[in-house]
Simulated scan of single mutants.
Amino acid sequence: MIYVGGVPFSTGSDDSSSSQGNDILMALMEHPALVSASSSFSAVQERKFSLSNDSHLVRTRQIKWVYIFQKEYATVDPSLVDLVGTDEATTCVGLIVRNPKSGMISVAHMDSPRIVEVGLTQMLSSVLDQNSDTILDVHLIGGFNDVSHQHENGVTESHEKLEGYSFPLCSKIVEILGKSINKFNIQTLHVLGYNTRQDSEGNPYPIFNGFLVETATGSIFPASFDGTTRCPDELVRRIRVTASFEDPSCKGRLLETYDTQSDKFVIAPCAWTKRQVHIALSLQNLSDSEILHMCSTSPFAEAPDFVDNQRRQWEYVLEHPDWRETFPSKQPRIFERTADGSWVRHPVRPRGSTFVYAK
């Protein structure tokens, strides 16, 4: 059930067809409270989160944070984590669910309508408490106008020929929230038209590609990250996102990476196939423009390091065609937080042998 401003929200329609999510989304996009909240969010200066020595912004390692990539989610305890966030979202949408009583926060980087229903269940597993009357705070940030013939508020005039990726994803999220027996108070809906601007050539792209959440207060800020803060195990986690599309066990699910109770990252084994190695070999010599158009849902909206990140993944897969080199004995890659807030790889013990460190 959806609430806005603590009040139950209804579109006034009993339609149970597949267009229900579209109707809910269109009505929410016009709600005065959410229009105002989105306008306020747009006016907030983006925070550049970095630990580089030459950064004049956030660079202290005393801050404990959790970063999630595309298709990942993490639930964090505010007593263990100060910040949680994501970026690199173009047509993807960040979903934040917070229990205002316990302070527990779950964040997901959703990239497809197919993972929304099970993904929300995964997120709620560590956020819900015994009190079924708890109204959970919800924020949706991301996606942009990658569809044609929109109204000013970023939705289309007709449901018949929806194009692009952002609208169907946003529609599915609010549809599942609306159908749930749990209560969700939507506080931020900074998506679609509210998160769109144009470059000098008229190409649309997102105003913000990411955000961070201050866990102590639940405050949300637009944010971007860099290589020093997209960690731990940045490259393997990127590859796991791609490899998961051919893994039946990952179908319709968000990827789990962070263990809430132990404050550790546990990267479960993932196998890249010979087909994926062949694809990496065939793509590595493409031009930057070709890579953007073949590998992105929004080639005009990607960050400057998108192509480089793609190339680094392919190079790794070609250097390690056997995934078991990365996951010896098919064991997960575990990272523990150190006293200064950084991450260290935990040793793995192959079955029947002494401790060794993976490469």
Rank of each mutant, 00 (worst) to 15 (best):
W314D: 12
I267A: 09
S298G: 07
E302Q: 03
S282Y: 10
I267C: 08
I291F: 06
V266Q: 00
D308L: 11
M294Q: 10
R324K: 15
P321C: 09
Q284V: 15
P269V: 11
S329Y: 04
L292A: 04
M294D: 11
L283K: 08
S296Q: 00
R324F: 05
D263C: 12
L292E: 00
R275L: 13
Q313P: 03
D263A: 01
S329Q: 05
T273V: 12
Q313H: 01
I279L: 14
Y316G: 02
N285L: 06
L286E: 10
S282I: 11
S298F: 15
C295E: 05
Q284F: 14
E319F: 13
Q276E: 15
Q284R: 08
W323E: 10
S298V: 09
I267Y: 11
D308I: 11
Q284E: 08
W314Q: 03
P328C: 02
C295H: 04
F306G: 02
P328F: 02
Q276L: 06
S282F: 11
R311P: 03
F327S: 03
P304G: 02
D322R: 10
I267G: 01
C270Y: 13
E315N: 04
E319A: 08
S262R: 04
S298M: 14
S289Q: 10
D305N: 12
P269R: 06
